[in-house]
């Protein structure tokens, strides 16, 4: 699905739980999330820190979307 969106020239920041699959199929901008049942969150964290974690992932996506890439590239979130 993401590749078809890229095909019309719209960059996609792709958040999987497992980077193996998008790397294999050639997704261009990949931001690996936490876990399959909660890709952009972590129920073990208190709510404010969970939201900060999610924000770090989304900020990484913004960075990915404004970066030129030549092929499948993983953007690891910058977690303080």
């Amino acid at each position: 699905m993401a590749k078809e969106i890229e095909r019309v020239g719209i960059p996609v920041a792709y958040f999987p739980a497992i980077p193996t699959v998008p790397l294999t199929v050639g997704q261009s901008r990949i931001i690996p999330g936490k876990a399959i049942p909660h890709v952009l969150g972590d129920p073990h964290l208190p709510p404010d820190r969970e939201k900060a974690y999610r924000r770090a992932l989304v900020e990484q996506a913004l960075k990915a979307l404004s970066t030129e890439v030549a092929g499948p590239t993983v953007f690891k979130p910058d977690l303080a």
Partner: peptide, 23 residues
Amino acid sequence: RFGREIAEDLRKAGVQAVLLTAT
């Protein structure tokens, strides 16, 4: 096919970037 249809919709709406979440 879903991707192509969504892409067309996004393009018409003037969307310039997408965040796609998967599991």
